[in-house]
């Protein structure tokens, strides 16, 4: 039994880690490790960087081909794809966000890890609507790029 089957939380070791160079270029990380019958990410990729042996196989991203466009992020039914891009000390994380209120550009949000714990703060850089899915890009500490997987919009005092 793998720990995530009991906890629902992946560790970084369950993933294919991009090289420093690939991180700087920006890549899509698919946090989809089980064999489930699903493949819209493969169809969504404009450069055929995502492949799958058959519809039940987990997706594999060719980090060299990936252009970090984020198309797959808004398509994935499991909300399991994230785009990470390192810029010096900072990092850009693109993730799907299905809660209200929708954060606004330049808003400061909490960055949350796979366990639901706050690990830092980030600044919203872009909010895009893909179909009915909101795809958000947040700038955070480069060290949190592979750990932050959710954001929390702060409640405002009205």
């Amino acid at each position: 039994m793998k720990p995530y089957e009991r906890t629902g939380v992946l560790s970084v070791n369950d993933l294919k880690i991009p090289s420093e160079k690939q991180l700087e270029k920006g890549v899509a990380i698919t946090e989809c490790v089980q064999e489930i019958p699903c493949n819209p990410c493969v169809d969504s990729c404009p450069v055929d960087a995502i492949s799958m042996n058959d519809i039940n196989a987990p997706p594999v991203v060719d980090y060299n081909k990936c252009i970090a466009c984020g198309q797959c992020v808004g398509v994935c039914p499991g909300l399991a794809i994230f785009v990470v891009k390192k810029q010096n000390e900072k990092g850009l994380l693109t993730l799907p966000y299905e809660f209200l209120p929708v954060p606004k550009k330049d808003e400061v949000v909490e960055t949350i890890d796979r366990d639901g714990e706050q690990i830092g703060e980030g600044v919203i850089k872009r909010v895009k609507k893909q179909g009915k899915t909101i795809v958000v890009t947040v700038e955070l500490d480069a060290k949190d790029l592979m750990n932050a997987r959710h954001i929390k919009v702060r409640e405002k005092d009205e």
């Binding site: 009991r6 629902g8 490790v33 089980q34």
Partner: peptide, 23 residues
């Protein structure tokens, strides 16, 4: 059950929102 029966990706969505799952 000793393991989560649904897809891991659904469990992961809950966990990062801070909801614990007790098998």
């Amino acid at each position: 059950a000793p393991i989560i029966g649904g897809y891991h990706v659904h469990a992961a969505k809950l966990r990062r929102c801070g909801v614990p799952i007790y098998t």
